[in-house]
Design a protein around this nucleic acid. Structure first.
Lengths: 182, 182
DNA sequence: TGTTGCATGTAAGGGGTTACATGATTGA
DNA sequence: TCAATCATGTAACCCCTTACATGCAACA
């Protein structure tokens, strides 16, 4: 039930419609917690029933009414409690590491290409992160723990350091399997 | 359908019972692709139907017959094809980064504790990885791309570099939120 | 006698993705 | 007029986790 907390984080800043939450998830949170509207709308309904959010209806452009969601006090309590609760890492599944593990069954040339593509992908990701980093670091609050900007900056830093680590790993493998093909 | 490929990798080395596969998944592959027996047994049945594996029955200790699975030529083809196919990274969800993003809603002291616990967890993980690394590096084939040991070593290397990157990231956050509490 | 290891299965439920479905407004 | 944006929902399916279920052999 962590999508719930992701939505509470965004709603703790200000009120949003489901549509706005979908866009903000896509543009910021998606980096570490992607979610589609088809998951967000039912979850907002469940959160309403649980008393974590309320909504006001307004006239929307389509066939249905627009709903603007706001976090409740119970929602803020839930968010605070989750933040301090013991963290248990969910197991992560990494297909490229799995392929690496089984690389004895692979064609070395093809595998070298797979790693090279991953390096290129990570370079593109890192370039995007770097732009975001520059923008964020300009903000005066970004160095103050407890600010919204500090949280965003540090989440981004995680993306950067892990992408860099993975890049050098993949690069070495591209080289090794490239050499092996000779 | 990547569990299928994980099982094919293990079966490409030698034949296994479902039980043995469960143990080997737990002891090696679980690092980057965890799976329980309740997922493995039905998958083996589906793989048999797809012609990727065959099995021979033998008498088992329990009420049911023991099944020893062996990879088929079609299975080896599938494995080879998957190995060289373009890799698309599955989105990863990281609850700790999500908390970091929303850290403005947290109690700084509690959060500092959460990051400190993560550092401790990673230290334990890294200690374990280091032992494995020492053992693996002794193997003469571990430096030869295309060997089973090289694959295992490089998968481990990924674990090590990403754990190190995450450790220093979490450590900085523990410090920053610890200071902020003063 | 009780626990661990070997050995194989099923059922219920959670969370996520993809696709289906509708429709007004604004701008190119 | 066509596409994009705003706006909300449902249905089918896949993968995974947790729990239920059985039972022999070896060892403490």
């Amino acid at each position: 039930m962590r999508l719930r907390h992701a939505l509470l984080v965004l709603l703790s800043e200000r009120e949003h419609t489901g549509y706005e939450l979908t866009l903000r998830m896509r543009d910021t949170v998606a980096m570490f917690w992607p979610a589609r509207h088809s998951q967000i709308y039912p979850e907002l309904a469940a959160m309403t029933e649980a008393g974590l959010v309320t909504f006001e209806t307004g006239s929307g452009p389509g066939p249905r009414q627009k709903k603007t969601y706001r976090i409740t006090e119970a929602g803020r309590d839930e968010l605070r409690e989750w933040m301090g609760s013991p963290f248990e890492k969910a197991p992560d599944r990494d297909e490229l590491v799995l392929r690496t593990f089984g690389s004895a069954s692979a064609n070395p040339v093809e595998l070298a290409g797979v790693y090279a593509a991953e390096v290129a992908r990570l370079d593109a990701v890192l370039a995007q992160y770097d732009e975001l980093l520059t923008t964020l670091e300009e903000h005066p609050d970004s160095d103050r723990p407890g600010s919204v900007e500090f949280g965003w900056l540090m989440a981004l830093r995680h993306g950067i350091v892990s992408a860099r680590a993975r890049r050098s790993w993949a690069d070495e493998l591209a080289t090794r399997f490239g050499e092996a093909a000779d």
